[in-house]
C-alpha cells in the first residue's frame, strides 16, 4: 500500500470515470494550446478556471497551477501559455483543463480507498484546503446502502454546514448520498481502483459538484 506502486489518472480522466458513475462533475474541456483553450472557454461561458492537467500532476494549488476566475479569452490564452510553460519534464504529457468557474461557500470532500484492515471504504467530510486539518469525516464499508450514505452525512460534526447557509440553500442530501453510492459502486465494480479523492466537492445551489478529482489505480 505505498504510493509508489500506484498510478494516478489525470484530473480529466478521473472526472470522466466519476461522471460515468453518476457523480455530478463541473462542465469542462481539455485543450492543448492557448487557441483551443480560448475556444473552449467561449463555449463554456465566462468566468472560467484553467488548470494544468496530466497523469502525474498533483498538488496543483501548491504549485500555482490553477488560474481562477478568468473573464475573457485573452486571459484564458495568457493563463494557458503560462501553465504549459510552467510544466517541467517530470510532469510528462500535459494539457490544460478549462472549466466553468463554479461558486459555493461550502466545499466538501468525498472519497474512497482500500483500507488494509477493512477493505474498500467510502468517506465524506468537510473539504477544501483545510480538509485534513479539520478531519471532520465519516467512513462506511463498501457496499453502502442508501441508509448508510444518509447516516454518514448525519455523522459529520459540522452537519450544520449542510443547512441553509449565507444565502445558499441547504445541501441536497439525496444528491450528496448519490455521490457516495456512486463511489461505493466504483470501488465494488473495479478492483484496479485503489483510491478516489473528490476534493473539493463544491455545493452549487445545494447540489454537490466535483470540481477536482484524483483516481489512483493499480499500475
Amino acid at each position: 500500500m505505498t504510493a509508489s506502486r500506484s498510478t494516478t489518472l489525470s484530473e480529466a480522466e478521473s472526472k470522466r470515470i466519476l461522471a460515468v458513475h453518476g457523480v455530478p462533475v463541473v462542465e469542462e474541456q481539455v485543450a492543448s494550446d492557448p487557441g483551443e483553450a480560448a475556444r473552449a472557454a467561449d463555449g463554456l461561458g465566462y468566468p472560467v478556471v484553467v488548470k494544468l492537467c496530466g497523469p502525474v500532476i498533483a498538488h496543483k494549488t501548491e504549485r500555482g497551477l490553477v488560474r481562477l476566475n478568468l473573464r475573457d479569452s485573452s486571459a484564458v490564452r495568457a493563463a494557458t501559455e503560462d501553465l504549459l510553460g510552467a510544466a517541467g519534464p517530470e510532469d510528462g504529457d500535459v494539457q490544460v483543463l478549462v472549466s466553468r468557474m463554479v461558486r459555493g461557500v461550502r466545499e466538501l470532500i468525498a472519497g474512497a480507498h482500500r483500507d488494509p484492515q477493512f477493505g474498500p471504504v467510502v468517506m465524506v467530510g468537510v473539504g477544501g484546503v483545510l480538509a485534513e486539518a479539520l478531519a471532520d469525516v465519516a467512513f462506511r464499508l463498501v457496499p453502502l446502502t442508501a441508509v448508510d450514505a444518509a447516516e454518514m452525512i448525519e455523522d459529520l460534526r459540522t452537519a450544520r454546514l449542510l443547512g441553509p447557509l449565507r444565502g445558499e440553500p441547504a445541501v441536497d442530501r439525496d444528491r450528496l448520498a448519490t455521490v457516495l453510492m456512486a463511489l461505493s459502486a466504483l470501488m465494488q465494480g473495479d478492483d484496479s481502483v485503489r483510491s478516489v479523492d473528490v476534493n473539493p466537492l463544491i455545493v452549487v445551489d445545494g447540489v454537490p459538484v466535483a470540481v477536482d478529482a484524483l483516481v489512483e489505480v493499480e499500475p
Binding site: 467512513f139 454518514m152 485503489r194 483510491s195
Partner: peptide, 21 residues
C-alpha cells in the same frame, strides 16, 4: 497510504467508528 486525502484521513479509528454505525 497517504497517496490520497481519503487514505490520510482514514485513521483506522474513524473507519472502525463508521463500521460500528
Amino acid at each position: 497510504a497517504a497517496a490520497s486525502h481519503t487514505g490520510a484521513l482514514a485513521a483506522d479509528d474513524k473507519v472502525f467508528d463508521g463500521a460500528c454505525r
